[in-house]
C-alpha cells in the first residue's frame, strides 16, 4: 500500500484586501513518491496553493495533513526542515559559498562535520557539479543553471520527504532547462521523492509529472495522469488548454510509460520494441521506420511490460483536428472584431 504524503482538505485562501479567493476549496491527495506538476496561468492560484503547503502563506480555511499530521499543529520551522523548497528566483545566500549554502539546514540540525561534508559532496555529484572547485565558489561565480542546481542541492540537503518547487526552471534558458528537467526526472527516479512542481509551461508539466493538477481561477480543473488529461479532459477549460499546443510538441513530452497498454497478443521482440523511458515522438519515428502498427514496450531489464499501438495515435490526431477547427474559429472572431 502506498503512503499518503500529503492531503489537502477543502483548502481556501483569500488574501487581505483581495476581492476574490486566490484558491477555493481544493481537496486532493498526493501519494508518497508521486511527481505532481501544478499547471496554470498566472493568477490561477497554483503558486498560492504550493506556498500554503509549507506555510509561507497560511490557508484561510481548510486543513493540510503531512503524513497524517495537521501541519498547523506542527512547529513551523521543524516542519519546513522536512520539506525541500526551490523557487524561481533561486534565492541562494550570496555571502555564503556553495558549500555553506548547501550545509545551512544540516548545520541547524546539528549534524557533525564529517556527515555534512559527505552530504555536500554527495549532493554536488547528484546535481552534476561534483568537481571539487565548485564547493568554494560563491553563487555570483556560477551561471544561472548552475545556481539552480545548487538551489536544488540545498533543498535536498537534509533529505526531505517532500520537495516543493515553484517554477524552478522558469528563468533559465531553454537548452539548460531541458537538461535540468531530464536530470530532475532521473533524480526523482533514483531517490523516489514526492515532488510538487508548479509551472505555467504545459510541456514541462506533461514531461515531468506522473500526475498533473490543472488549475484555473483558484480551483482544480483536473487532477489526473497526463494520459487521462489528454484523452479524457474533465471540462472545456482543460480541453482548450491541451489543444493550444502543436501535436508534435506534445508528443515530445509524453512519456511512453504513461501510454503503455496491456499486451493484446503474444510478444515477439521482432515486432519492434521501444524503451519505456522514451517519449511519444520516438514512438512515432519507430512506427515510420518499422512500418509496424504496434510496438512492444520494454523496461530497464529489457522485459516486455506492455504495448503501444498506432490506434492510440489516431485518438491524438482527432484532438488535433479539433484544434485546427478551433483556430479557424478564433481567427474568424478576430477578423470580425477588426472590422469594428
Amino acid at each position: 500500500m502506498t503512503n499518503i504524503a500529503l492531503e489537502l482538505v477543502n483548502i481556501t485562501k483569500k488574501f487581505a484586501h483581495a476581492e476574490t479567493n486566490s484558491v477555493t476549496g481544493v481537496s486532493l491527495t498526493i501519494n508518497e513518491g508521486d511527481f505532481v506538476t501544478i499547471l496554470g496561468t498566472s493568477g490561477s492560484g497554483k503558486t498560492t496553493l504550493l506556498k500554503m503547503v509549507n506555510r509561507i502563506y497560511e490557508s484561510t480555511s481548510g486543513d493540510i495533513f503531512f503524513y497524517g499530521e495537521n501541519i498547523k499543529k506542527l512547529k513551523v520551522e521543524d516542519y519546513r526542515r522536512k520539506i525541500g523548497y526551490v523557487i524561481q528566483q533561486i534565492g541562494l545566500f550570496p555571502h555564503m559559498t556553495v558549500e555553506q549554502n548547501i550545509a545551512t539546514v544540516p548545520k541547524i540540525l546539528h549534524w557533525n562535520k564529517e556527515k555534512i561534508n559527505a552530504r555536500v559532496d554527495e549532493l554536488l555529484k547528484l546535481v552534476g557539479l561534483g568537481d571539487e572547485h565548485y564547493k568554494k565558489r560563491y553563487p555570483k561565480q556560477l551561471s544561472g543553471g548552475q545556481q539552480q542546481r545548487i538551489g536544488l542541492a540545498r533543498a535536498m540537503a537534509a533529505d526531505p520527504q517532500l520537495m516543493l518547487m515553484d517554477e524552478p526552471f522558469g528563468a533559465i534558458d531553454a537548452i539548460t532547462r531541458q537538461n535540468l528537467q531530464d536530470e530532475l526526472i532521473n533524480i526523482q527516479k533514483k531517490l523516489n521523492k514526492t515532488i510538487l512542481f508548479v509551472t505555467h509551461d504545459i510541456n514541462e508539466a506533461f514531461k515531468l509529472g506522473d500526475k498533473i493538477i490543472i488549475m484555473d481561477k483558484g480551483e482544480v480543473q483536473q487532477f489526473d495522469t497526463p494520459y487521462n488529461i489528454l484523452f479524457h479532459p474533465a471540462n472545456d477549460f482543460v480541453k482548450q488548454l491541451i489543444e493550444t499546443e502543436n501535436i508534435i510538441n506534445r508528443l515530445k513530452v509524453l512519456r511512453v510509460e504513461n501510454f503503455v497498454q496491456p499486451l493484446t497478443q503474444p510478444t515477439k521482440l521482432a515486432d519492434g520494441v521501444i524503451h519505456n523511458d522514451k517519449f511519444l515522438d520516438d514512438v512515432l519515428a519507430k512506427f515510420f521506420e518499422t512500418g509496424k502498427k504496434r510496438l512492444v514496450v520494454i523496461d530497464d531489464q529489457e522485459e516486455p511490460i506492455g504495448e503501444i499501438s498506432w490506434d492510440q495515435f489516431i485518438q491524438l490526431k482527432k484532438i488535433q483536428d479539433n484544434v485546427v477547427r478551433l483556430d479557424v474559429q478564433k481567427k474568424n472572431i478576430r477578423r470580425v472584431n477588426d472590422h469594428d
Binding site: R80, Y85, I87, G91, L92, V105, I108, G151
Partner: peptide
C-alpha cells in the same frame, strides 16, 4: 536584502533569529 533570499531562508526552516 532580496525578498526571494528571505523566502528561501524561511522556506528551508530558518527561525526568525537564525
Amino acid at each position: 536584502v532580496d525578498a526571494s533570499i528571505l523566502e528561501a531562508g524561511r522556506g528551508m526552516g530558518l527561525s526568525k533569529l537564525q
